[in-house]
Design a binder for these strands. Structure first.
Length: 637
RNA sequence: CGGGGUGUAGCGCAGCUUGGUAGCGCGUUUCGUUCGGGACGAAAAGGUCGCAGGUUCAAAUCCUGUCACCCCGACCA
């Protein structure tokens, strides 16, 4: 055994674990509060146990899976040029005050008071800590670029922890931070970002996951500055849209809608379909309720959402309070990020009381509400900015709010009922052919833009005549171009060749390690239990002795375990004094990829039974001296 | 934070309406018979009914408060 004790070795031995010597508390039933498959399976198979809301023990099997994920993460990040370090989970609260994240993170930040009465935070992420570290270590461009990462427990006081390991208050995360003097060129942020994108692709591919890399809500630098890595599975809580031709994929929060032809008669143009009728619509909370009551389809309604501009103190002094009113079709959803981008203003959903004081009858607002109000820009989604239905070849029929409580109107017409002609107000066309307006202009109070969430069936933004298709996913990784947000706020400044001082440009890159384990189970399980991809399985091979008292089986179990582990295979040996039934049930539950069963019948013919967890058949008998090679081939295959 | 729900043995549940000495299944322990997909028989251990008040001769059960957990929504670098 001397070789295995060598300090320097190129061998990696597998482990052999006897089931009776470890803790695998399988259960027939899951706790009633476990609903999602990963939660049920990880509990029943003895991987996790709840400690509190959103807090779990990782039992030996789970910890082995987590370590395998971490090993892959380390190898790929090290190969991508990153260095591992470890920062504390506990940090002084002042660090969060510098970047105002004590406010922006809000109640999600765990706060801990120490014996001296000083406030500390349990870190939800480490931008502040690492920026503070770098301030003390880095002062020249010659020391950059750098890419540093850690794998560590993170804390977030989630409003509602749920779905087992998928949304926890304490979880394991890999977080990386890169530091640069430039965005472009050698050593720039983009180079590292691309390297991390490749590293993430390698990591999730090596984990055996079916995943998509999708564009996510952009960072402060703009462009495609953020990508999410999503495990594809129907139970995912995020909706993603993909273009089947170009490979473009994006989170629904971000997804662009491809070019659509402008209305044939022009935006807003169309004859009234009838006189504007007022209808009393009491006690109808949603668009669908109103639509049903008015006997129209939601797509014939206009939904009007009031945002308030999050003004800087300077703008507030100069322009006063400013508002953005977004109009979309009733069956569409307003996308706040697109409203922000189209208007060029940071916005937030208006406070109901404040908006009502301004004269917006929240819940019953129509486009008419903006007319005559100062400091209001109306953004109209292109699908709502029409008056003529080109498909039907006749003028559109709109139902919208009555601008007073419990009233809606029918036969709203853009040109007639706004009080001003919108075609005139929005007479300037953007380079995309949209009418444009501006918040601080005089009479151009409205503009047309893409401000709604994309939907399946919408045209792809990257391929002609192609429709977007929907999928669902679980976010397991996120890479992000941070820019100078933290370096500027905290003063991480370096001098360049000409002694000019610049804030350092940063990127950050996260992987939810514990969530990846759960997402993998969501993606890969059946009615009987977990089906691990070999790279993440806690053990590669499960050897089951049908009768532990049978000496031939004992001898063979030891022999096969030794041969497999010497080849680097991790072996779990079911040596429990149980009847075969429960052993097979447990084998399926815990999901080890290869099961080798030592039983009298097969051994009488010089063989053992060999079965893959993922296959539905009953397995086959394999000659004893061929089984090691066959197992390794199956694991590597 | 809004809406809904649940706390009774390790797990899953019944009992509560109509107050009267706490039960079932699984699991656990022992013995026997079994032994290839969650065996059978016998015996046994295990619960201050989430917690605190109150009503009552008497509270798992009725009342008040409180805590915990879960689900839907809001939220989610």
């Amino acid at each position: 055994m001397s070789s295995s004790r060598s300090v320097v070795t190129n061998r990696k031995l597998g482990v052999v674990q006897k089931w009776s010597h470890t803790l695998i508390p399988t259960t027939r039933e899951a706790p009633k509060d476990a609903e999602v498959p990963s939660h049920v399976m990880l509990h029943r198979a003895g991987y996790i146990r709840p400690v509190g809301a959103g807090i779990y023990d990782y039992l030996p099997l789970a910890w082995r899976v987590l370590q395998k994920i971490q090993d892959i993460v380390r190898e790929e990040l090290n190969a991508a040029g990153a260095s591992e370090l470890l920062m504390p989970a506990l940090e002084p609260f002042e660090l969060f005050k510098d970047t105002k994240r004590d406010e922006t993170y809000g109640d999600n930040l765990f706060r801990v008071k120490d014996r001296k009465g000083r406030m500390n935070a349990l870190a939800p992420t480490h931008e502040e800590v690492i920026t503070d570290l770098m301030i003390g270590c880095i002062n020249s461009y010659k020391q950059l670029p750098l890419n540093l990462y850690q794998i560590q427990t993170k804390f977030r006081d989630e409003a509602r922890p749920r779905a087992g390991l998928l949304r926890c208050r304490e979880f394991i995360m890999k977080d990386a931070y890169s530091f640069h003097t430039t965005v472009e060129g050698a050593g720039g942020l983009n180079t590292t970002y691309d390297a991390m994108y490749r590293a993430y692709t390698n990591i999730f591919t090596r984990c055996g996951l079916d995943f998509s890399a999708v564009e996510a809500e952009s960072g402060p630098i703009g462009g495609s500055a953020s990508h999410e890595f999503m495990v594809n599975c129907v139970s995912g809580e995020d909706t993603i849209l993909k273009c089947p031709v170009s490979g473009y994929a994006a989170n629904v929060e971000k997804c662009e809608v491809g070019p659509r032809p402008a209305p044939s008669k022009g935006y807003f143009a169309g004859e009234p379909t009838g006189t504007l009728e007022e209808h009393h619509t009491p006690g109808l909370p949603g668009i669908d309720d109103v639509a049903a009551f008015m006997k129209v389809k939601p797509e014939n309604m206009l939904k009007t959402i009031v945002f308030k501009v999050d003004s800087t103190p300077e703008d507030l002094a100069k322009y006063g309070e400013e508002w953005i009113v977004a109009v979309v079709r009733g069956d569409h959803d307003v996308n706040e990020g697109k409203v922000r981008d189209a208007s060029g203003c940071k916005v937030k959903l208006a406070d109901i009381k404040e908006a009502e004081a301004k004269g917006f009858a929240i819940g019953f607002v129509s486009p008419r509400a903006v007319v005559g109000k100062k400091g209001v820009l109306m953004l109209v989604d292109r699908d709502a900015a029409v008056g003529f239905d080109d498909k039907k070849g006749k003028s559109m029929f709109w139902v919208t709010g009555g601008d007073k409580k419990d009233y809606h109107v029918k036969h709203f017409n853009w040109q007639r009922d706004l009080g001003k002609d919108p075609m005139d107000a929005a007479s300037h066309l953007s380079d995309k052919g949209f009418p444009t307006g501006s918040l601080r202009g005089d009479d151009k109070y409205l503009m047309v833009a893409d401000i709604r969430n994309a939907l399946p069936g919408d045209p792809s933004p990257r391929a002609a005549n192609t429709a977007l298709v929907a999928g669902r996913g679980i976010e397991v990784g996120h890479i992000f171009k941070l820019g100078t947000k933290y370096s500027q706020a905290m003063g991480l400044i370096v001098a360049d060749e000409t002694q000019q001082k610049h804030p350092v440009i940063m990127g950050c890159y996260g992987i939810g390690v514990s969530r990846t384990m759960a997402a993998c189970v969501e993606m890969s399980h059946d009615a009987d239990g977990i089906v691990w991809p070999a790279p993440l399985a806690p053990y590669h091979v499960l050897i089951t002795m049908v009768d532990i008292k049978n000496e031939a089986q004992q001898t063979l179990a030891v022999k096969l375990s030794k041969e497999l582990s010497e080849q680097g295979v991790d072996v779990l040996l079911d040596d429990r004094d149980e009847r075969p039934g429960p052993k097979f049930k447990d084998a399926d539950l815990i999901g080890i990829p290869v099961r080798i069963t030592l039983g009298e019948k097969a051994m009488a013919t010089g063989g053992v039974e060999f079965k893959l967890r993922k296959s539905k058949d009953k397995g086959e008998v394999v000659a004893i001296d061929a089984v090691v090679a066959k197992a390794i081939a199956a694991i590597n295959g």
